[in-house]
């Protein structure tokens, strides 16, 4: 299959493509899901991250 002798190799080849399709399907299906409010912890984290990035 696919010019490849060993089924273990073409299985890997096919799984690479199938797992990419899984990623595309999941990403498209959940494109607008998972938006979250900004909590006070998020703001503190962002301020500290900004400080650390600026210092470095």
């Amino acid at each position: 299959m696919l010019g490849i002798a060993d089924p273990q190799i073409w299985l890997a080849y096919v799984l690479c493509i199938l797992s990419t399709i899984l990623c595309v399907y999941y990403g498209a299906k959940n494109w607008d899901k998972g938006d979250e409010p900004v909590y006070p912890e998020d703001v503190t984290w962002a301020e500290d991250e900004k400080k650390a990035t600026a210092e470095n």
């Binding site: 990623c23 595309v24 498209a28 494109w31 899901k33 998972g34 938006d35 979250e36």
Partner: peptide, 22 residues
Amino acid sequence: FMTVKSSRELNRAVLSGGIFIL
């Protein structure tokens, strides 16, 4: 993972991330 705004950005990143690594 900590730098993104919400889980939504991670969901979206899965789509192009998979294609990119392939």
